[in-house]
Design a protein around this nucleic acid. Structure first.
Lengths: 341, 341
DNA sequence: CTGTTAGCGCTTTCAC
DNA sequence: GTGAAAGCGCTAACAG
């Protein structure tokens, strides 16, 4: 049998309450007593039964998710996954509340974060807009002992405890290599559609993409980035325009959201010429486009995994526990038409 | 607050013991009483606190992992992941024992399974050798109420509760499309290195691969499969031989293990000609080969995820609980040199 | 500073 | 058939 607090108490010659105080580093224990108890703990190889502790504490974890109010499929999916987690709340003792903030708006995000500082939830998960003010607000929360994790897009230079999202530089590089290899040495222009350069994930994808194209596929040349604000209408307009004017385009990389518009533009110009296209995020639209050949590969992050991982990590941090690193690494999924889930 | 057994008891006008009997479908409750309790449960929307239940039961889960005694990196990794799970045992109340059986040996596997039938562990995970005898042995265990999951390679037509592994047909198809696209319309022969056609994962990968090559890349022709028994030495010999004799080979698909040997053979012939190579399983050897350009893409299954998933599912089945499907889907990882973890 | 005691939500004797 | 009471490992008053 695993040793319990009783065993520790017996070995150390103290009461349960004292053991508990030491275990939870509460004050009010003489140094010598503390040492005795700690020795007993070590000798017995005691590991705390977290389930029992939580039961006794009646502890629940009030967590907050801060999500951008963006109207694209990916954010909808992320939202849905958070709701799914809420549905599981009773089971895993979480109480998740979500707050929507305007997308790409550092000030709004900061305001919410500051309010949360007073509320002191057991943990905060946010899709970060990458700005110094946001970073400072997050660092303040961290300093106050509130666990914070970023989801999907990270916060440069901040002290957040964890980032639950993919390596976006790697994502961009991978997109570049796929595109380059699929194009098999052809020469021509490559168009890049992004959402906004205000979020770190998009910037990083572009950076990775540009690096590999430049270094390893010199016969391809990158056109200036098109910023579609993750908005299907805008994306459609801009891409259609680019395809008409730039006759040399042979490849397209869509690194943000709003692919609905992109796909429409691609189909309108389909007869024109063969295009190789790589896009991000598996949605009903991109899935259909992959299957009908409009898109050649989709890079994806699993929103469900990100949400569950964020919660696991927040919980672990709240309890001062370790996390299984491998389990929390968010993979970059690559989908061809053959391995769709 | 969530309703508890006390609330049910109060509402139904019975004692805790009776509630518990109903909850755990134990006998000794009159039909009418049972109905009263069940109604109360429904009305209150009661959900059992599994942690508290386990605490009271002092329950642990004795699980058994049956692994093939294969000397290749992937099986070593799988083994290591099981050991990692053992290290976490105290925390998640599992008691995991692993049994090694000779690889590709249905009889040995059946013998072990039958012995386990008497021992009655709380759950069994096995890497299946795909044979009718094995299927029957597994089905017998399932019928006796023991949760069984297959890991890595599945068992055709069996009643196992779950398969914790990738979709291998999809894996083969994906390999074909990557190879085909990377070769960009070139004509030539493709060599396939497998471990054994006795395991379902290898058969399925081949099947998926052959289908897509035939249908979508008619300029490529498949050479007869080379069976390397997942043995580096044998693989080296056979591949080296094939590369010497078949001058038309422009692509290689290695769908099994023992890639150490494959890589050696490829390097020996490197000067000869350009080869496009797709292999399975990320190991130190394949990783190095991917980075140095000997291999162009690696398809991988995450052994850690498979093991953790198998355990989660076994636990859920043992408790009669539901699993989160999305969480238990084992992804096919695709690695290029840019997105290595 | 330290100990006693009740209790978290559930299960399990052992009576009745 | 049913119920009362003790206890799983831990925490939290409240005394001393």
């Amino acid at each position: 049998m695993r040793p319990t607090v009783h065993d520790i108490a017996a070995v150390a010659g103290v009461s349960l309450a004292t053991v508990d105080r030491v275990l939870n580093q509460r004050p009010g224990v003489r140094h010598v007593t503390r040492e005795k108890v700690e020795r007993a703990i070590r000798e017995l190889g005691y590991v705390r039964d977290v389930a029992a502790a939580n039961l006794a504490k009646g502890r629940t974890y009030p967590f907050v998710f801060i999500l951008p109010a963006s109207d694209n499929s990916f954010m909808h999916a992320l939202n849905a996954e958070v709701r799914a987690a809420v549905a599981r709340s009773p089971v895993d003792r979480t109480e998740i509340r979500t707050i929507e903030v305007p997308a790409f708006d550092p000030a709004a995000l900061v305001a919410v974060l500051e309010k949360l500082g007073e509320e002191r939830p057991a943990g905060i998960a946010l899709v970060a807009t990458d700005a110094p003010d946001v970073r400072d607000a997050v660092d303040r929360l961290v300093k106050e002992g509130i666990p914070v994790v970023t989801v999907v897009s990270d916060l440069t230079g901040s002290q957040r405890h964890h980032y639950a999202g993919v390596d976006n530089i790697a994502a961009g590089r991978t997109a570049a290599r796929l595109l380059g290899r699929f194009l098999g040495g052809a020469s021509g222009d490559v168009a890049v559609l992004a959402g906004s350069m205000l979020v770190r994930d998009h910037r990083e994808r572009l950076e990775g993409f540009a690096t590999v194209i430049a270094k390893e596929f010199p016969s391809l040349s990158l056109l200036p980035v098109i910023e579609g604000r993750d908005d299907p209408e805008l994306a459609h307009m801009l891409v259609a325009d680019a395809l008409s004017k730039q006759r040399g385009i042979i490849g397209v990389y869509s690194l943000g959201a709003g692919n609905r518009g992109l796909i429409r533009a691609l189909k309108e110009k389909a007869g024109d010429r063969a295009l190789t296209v790589i896009a991000h995020e598996l949605t009903t639209h991109t899935r259909a486009a992959l299957l009908d050949g409009t898109i050649d590969a989709i890079l994806n992050q699993d929103a469900g995994h990100e949400v569950r991982s964020a919660i696991r990590v927040l919980k672990a941090k709240a309890d001062g526990l370790a996390v299984i690193d491998g389990q929390e690494r968010i993979r970059l999924d690559i989908f061809l038409k053959d391995n769709l889930p």
